[in-house]
């Protein structure tokens, strides 16, 4: 009975969505704010990557909300998993010996990934990349040792420090604009020469803050999930 209801529901929804798809007017969608941004972004923001000028300039508040969502998810996850108590117990269990291949490749990859992540973050206003993409790579760099050596403890204090200060930096840059008489999150400083590393005003700073924040949040999330699963694996034995 329940299956039938579910089937009917999803069938109806599928029908509805397909009818919607059928109704689409063909041809290019109208582009109002998109066209205005393409016309003015170089003048107003000065970033070579126009998506970056949307993400951090025109819709900066969305990005703030977005890193807040990641932070909330990380906080809620540690609320659910109770990370701190868990890692204390996990650190008591001795670290397992790492296989030499795994261990040395992690040692090889860690600086590489770190450099790559930072490069992508710093060049976010010039190339397809930025804080989110680079932040994920940073988180990967810090997660790799956990994968190679299960049971290894991770420095939660450091993560909390980075995530706190990077998130605060984003808001403080926005508030600086507000208190200097401009609007909240208005880009600061001169635009500089478009296409250069030091250009686009305060956008690179914002992206560095976003990158560190995303990296810290994701490493915290992954460490929490990994910590609890390796702990559960210990408990099973």
């Amino acid at each position: 009975m329940r299956n039938l209801t579910a089937l009917l529901f999803s069938g109806g929804l599928a029908f509805l969505l397909m009818v919607i798809a059928w109704q689409f007017t063909l041809g290019d969608a109208p582009m109002l704010i998109g066209a205005a941004i393409l016309d003015n972004a170089v003048k107003e923001v000065g970033a070579a990557n126009l998506v970056t000028s949307v993400v951090l300039g025109y819709r900066g508040i969305d990005t703030l909300g977005e890193i807040a969502i990641l932070f909330t998810a990380a906080t809620a996850t540690s609320m659910v998993l109770g990370s701190f108590a868990m890692t204390d117990e996990a650190s008591e269990t001795e670290q397992r010996e790492d296989g030499s291949i795994l261990g040395s490749s992690v040692r090889l990859f860690f600086p590489l990934l770190l450099t790559l992540g930072l490069y992508i973050i710093v060049h976010g206003h010039l190339t397809p990349g930025g804080g989110f993409q680079g932040g994920v790579i940073l988180a990967g760099a810090f997660f790799l040792p956990l994968l190679a050596i299960p049971g290894r403890s991770i420095n939660h204090g450091g993560i909390a420090l980075v995530e706190g200060f990077s998130g605060a930096a984003f808001i403080l840059i926005g508030l600086t604009a507000l208190f200097s008489g401009q609007a909240f999150l208005q880009p600061l400083f001169e635009h500089g020469v478009i296409g250069h590393l030091f250009s686009a005003g305060s956008l690179p700073l914002l992206y560095i803050a976003v990158g560190l924040k995303v990296g810290a949040e994701l490493s915290g999330l992954l460490a929490n999930l990994a910590g609890i699963s390796s702990h559960a694996a210990e408990a099973e034995k």
Binding site: A36, E44, Y58, G60, A183, Q186
Partner: peptide, 13 residues
């Protein structure tokens, strides 16, 4: 209405 980021409404938030 206030414009966030200083970008006027239809374009900015």
């Amino acid at each position: 209405s206030i414009a966030l980021g200083g970008f006027l409404p239809p374009v900015g938030v």
